[in-house]
Computed example of a mutant assay.
Amino acid sequence: MPKILFTASTYSHIVQFHRPYLSAFRALGWTVDVACGGAPMEIPEAHRTIHLDFEKQMLSPRNGRALRQLRRTMRETAYDVVSCHTALASFFTRLAVNGGKQRPKVVCMVHGYLFGENNPAAKGLILQAAEKLVASRTDLLMTMNRWDTQYAAAHRLGKKMVEIPGVGLDPSRLPPISREEASALRRQWGIEETDTLLLYAAEFSGRKSQQVLLRALAQLPLQVKLALPGQGALLEECVALARSLGIEQRVIFPGQVARMAQWYGAADIAVSASRSEGLPFNIMEAMYYGLPVVASAVKGHTDLLVPDTCGLLYPYGDWQACAAQLQKLLQSPEERERMGRQGRQSVGVYCLDQVLPIIMAQYEALIPLRDETITHT
């Protein structure tokens, strides 16, 4: 049986984005292994799950141990394909691949380079150097937005490069929400019928920049509320900022939410303040539920949101411009409805039934997926 190894920094990444692809390879008769770090989670589609001791700090000794474990795993199991995801795991996975002729084909999916645009320059130089170091071991590089595609092509970061429409939004995980369900959630959190609810579901990290939205909210009418589902290192800092701005009664911190569908159903406008993205699911999900979007004008967002069509953009970090764009939508319910409708119509090309065949075709172009006698090259 042909064999493939998927790697990522966290179990949650594989669970959230790649289970349909594990299933697709299994259906074709492949042995499917997964190697990842973080909090362990069940991945029933994998034949075997290998825990790696990854840590977000690139030079952590734990990553050295993960590198050695990856090398040992690849040496013991002759994989035909290695598919790597997330910046940290992708680097160490490709570093672990034997550089000789007898090695697996290596596929790297870029979920958003963490350099360029508004990202810190010093960190960016390190990450750029890391990508160049392992470019020769990247047989297929899949990017998700124009900026990443152009950068990868200019710096030859893969032997073959292709832009894909994300990993596929799965409508089966996004059930319709009735008015009754949406109203019940709003009542539970003290949101009046006359309130306008903004929604931004994201990890509380420097890259996600929730502080921008809090400062923008302070400039908006009292009837505007903001929901910030998620956990992360900067959660308490954001809670303190909301308090210092005098808007703590208008901000909802519900923590980690397992079922986001209810929140999309309850919200009026989706917002984002992210510093950079690949092709963000939270924006696509909002579009799927017919919400207009106000987001920072960064890669990923600019690919999904055609200005004045299904959303409005503002310069990253500019909370005054963010507030001004939100004010436009607050003053025009008709415009909100039009943008929501446009978003719902345009998101179809990013849905799983459209995207999965595109991505599997890229694997097929690299190596026969249905050939039981695959030879390493």
Rank of each mutant, 00 (worst) to 15 (best):
P2Q: 01
P2N: 03
K3C: 10
I4M: 08
A8P: 08
S9I: 07
T10S: 05
V15F: 01
V15G: 00
W30D: 03
D33R: 09
G38I: 08
I43S: 05
P44L: 01
E45T: 05
E45G: 06
H47E: 14
H47W: 09
L52Q: 14
D53S: 15
R62P: 10
G64L: 15
R65M: 11
R65I: 11
Q69R: 15
T73S: 05
R75H: 12
S83E: 03
C84V: 12
T86D: 11
A87Y: 14
A89Q: 11
T93M: 05
R94M: 13
L95F: 08
A96N: 13
G100C: 09
K101L: 09
V106S: 15
V110C: 13
V110G: 03
L114S: 10
G116Q: 01
P120E: 02
P120W: 03
K123P: 02
L125M: 06
K132I: 05
R137Q: 14
D139G: 07
L140I: 03
L141P: 06
R146F: 00
Q150M: 09
K159E: 08
K160C: 08
M161Y: 00
I164A: 05
G166V: 04
V167C: 05
G168R: 04
S183Y: 07
S183W: 10
G190I: 04
E193H: 05
E193L: 01
T194A: 11
T196L: 05
L198G: 03
S209R: 15
Q210S: 04
L213G: 13
L214I: 07
L214N: 09
R215T: 10
A216I: 13
A216L: 13
L217G: 04
K225N: 11
G230M: 04
G232D: 02
G232V: 01
L234D: 09
V239R: 15
L241G: 08
A242E: 05
R243K: 15
L245C: 06
Q256F: 12
Q256M: 03
G265E: 03
A273W: 01
L279F: 07
I283S: 10
A295T: 15
A297L: 08
A297T: 08
V298T: 07
K299Q: 13
H301M: 01
D303I: 06
D308G: 06
G311D: 12
L312P: 00
Y314K: 06
P315Y: 07
Y316P: 07
A323H: 03
A324L: 10
L329P: 14
P333G: 10
P333F: 10
R336P: 12
E337I: 06
Q342G: 00
R344T: 12
Q345M: 10
L352M: 10
L352I: 14
P357V: 09
Q362I: 12
L369A: 11
R370V: 09
